[in-house]
Structures are given as C-alpha cells and as structure tokens.
C-alpha cells in the first residue's frame, strides 16, 4: 500500500462491520467514513464500542483469540482484513496511542527510533548522524525537542506523563504512518498536559488522519473537526463537531451531550 492507486477521500472506511467477543456482539453493521487529514473524535458511553471500533482498525482486537469480525475496514482504500495483508505493515502504517502513556523502558532516543529500527532499517544499525536526524525531527514534530534534547540518553519512563505521551506519538512518526489511532490519550493527564497534547494534535492534523476516542465531551468539542457518537455498538450520528454539539440530529446524541447518561 505504498502508493494507493485508487485515490480516496476517506482514510478509513468501514462497511457493515460486525464484531463479536465470543458470543457478545460489540459492533453492529458499522458504516463509518473518516475523512483524510482531519481529526475525528468518537464519543459515547462506556461499553458503546468506540474503543473496539478503534482497535479493529489496526487489528489489535484479534490478539484476543475469541474475537470474530465480519464486514470490511478499508484504510487508504485498502482492506486491512484482506488475506494478503501483512499485519506488521498494518501496524506500521496505522499508529496507536494508548490511554496510559507506554514508553518502553529504554532511552528517549531509543524509543523514538524503535519502530524505525523494526521497519525501515531491517535491523541494521543506522549511521549515528542519520539516526539523530530522525530522532530530532520526530521530537520537534511533537513539540518535545526543546525540553528533552539534552537528555536523549535518559530513561523514557522517567519523563512526566505529558512528555511520555508526546514521546509515544513521536515514536510512531519516523515510519510515516497514514493514520494515528488514539484511545483516550489524555485521560491519564492533568488539564495542562491535556491542553498541550490537544495543541499537538492540531499541529499534526493535515499530515495524518487522526481518530481519537474520548470520554471528555469538552475535548471532543475542542479538539476534533468531525465527531462520531456511538451507542450500543452502533453509530448514532456522525458529522461536523461544532454542528453536532449545537444542533444534534438525534435525541440520544442530545441527551448524551447534555450529560444525562454516560
């Protein structure tokens, strides 16, 4: 999927996506179209399937052996569930950021270069200069360079949570992903750090398609251009964020946004 032949305006497109955990159905006929290069947020009460949907895009749901999926998910016009798809390539092109920052217990520099080492350089050691360039570029991109440039050799796990989360985003960039999936990336952070990460997301939009799951309604409103509201494994409403928060089309959306449940 290096050069998508069929130009598509959607970065992610699911068709009739159904997903079961054992006998429990978590997603029902989900048709979702995520536009390329923008930030799309997914909101909905706990257990509505938003994380499941997010995780099925880069196929990490299937690591739990008892998950069954039907329908299709296309990323950049290619079906990620097609038999010829190499899962390692999927993980490379679709980065994922988690609720709890999970930097690896190695140095900051090694964290940033980790995925690049896995994919781009085929295990071969990069020349130091080239490596340092990649590290600097990624860290600058996530607005982290200035605060860590003097301690690149330090343990990444000693950074503050905000820095850790930025680092977790930075380490995805050197392999040039198309899509960044974020599963409540700010819920472990304090308000100031949340603001910083949201700023970063705005900074990254355009170059990456960002799909973000959040429990924080204000965050969805502030930090996304389109918003998807899910309920009981189905998409209720999907539209322009500002519009949806002002004039939701469905009663359920209105109730959720007003905080009547969730």
């Amino acid at each position: 999927m290096d050069s998508p032949t069929t130009a598509t305006q959607f970065a992610i497109e699911t068709r009739k996506l159904n997903l079961w955990y054992g006998s429990f159905q978590a997603l029902f006929d989900v048709d979702l179209q995520v536009k390329q290069g923008i930030i799309t947020s997914m909101i909905g009460p706990s257990g509505c399937g938003k994380s499941t949907l997010l995780r099925s895009v880069n196929r990490i749901t299937e690591r739990l052996g008892y998950v069954r999926t039907t329908g299709s998910i296309e990323v950049m016009g290619r079906d990620v569930y097609a038999p010829e798809v190499e899962i390692v390539q999927v993980r490379k092109r679709i980065g994922m950021v988690f609720q709890r920052p999970n930097p690896l217990p190695i140095s900051i520099r090694d964290n940033v270069i980790f995925a690049h080492r896995l994919h781009a350089s085929a295990g071969r050691r990069l020349p130091k200069r080239e490596r340092d360039e990649i590290v600097e570029k990624a860290l600058r991109r996530v607005l982290l360079w200035d605060s860590v440039k003097d301690r690149l050799g330090r343990q990444a796990t000693a950074l503050s949570l905000e820095e850790q989360q930025k680092l977790c985003i930075a380490r995805l960039l050197p392999v040039q992903p198309d899509v960044l999936l974020m599963d409540e990336p700010c819920s472990a952070l304090d308000p100031k750090a949340t603001e910083a990460v949201e700023e970063l997301l705005w900074e990254l939009r355009g170059d990456f398609t960002i799909l973000i799951v959040t429990h924080n309604m204000a965050q969805a409103r502030r930090a996304s251009e389109e918003c998807v509201f899910m309920l009981m494994g189905k998409i209720v409403e999907h539209g322009d964020t500002a519009e949806m928060f002002v004039t939701p089309r469905f009663e359920e959306t209105a109730h959720y946004i007003e905080g009547r449940y969730g």
Binding site: R91, L104, I106, A115, L118
Partner: peptide
C-alpha cells in the same frame, strides 16, 4: 504494557523479547 507497545508498532514476538 511494554509488550503491547512493541506489538502495536509491528514488532514480532522475537523482536519484542530480544529488545525489551
């Protein structure tokens, strides 16, 4: 979570074992 982090970047089991 370290293993998860590695796998999600596309590391194989062995790469995860050896590096982390």
């Amino acid at each position: 979570e370290f293993r998860e982090a590695c796998w999600n970047m596309g590391a194989t089991r062995w790469q995860t074992i050896r590096r982390i």
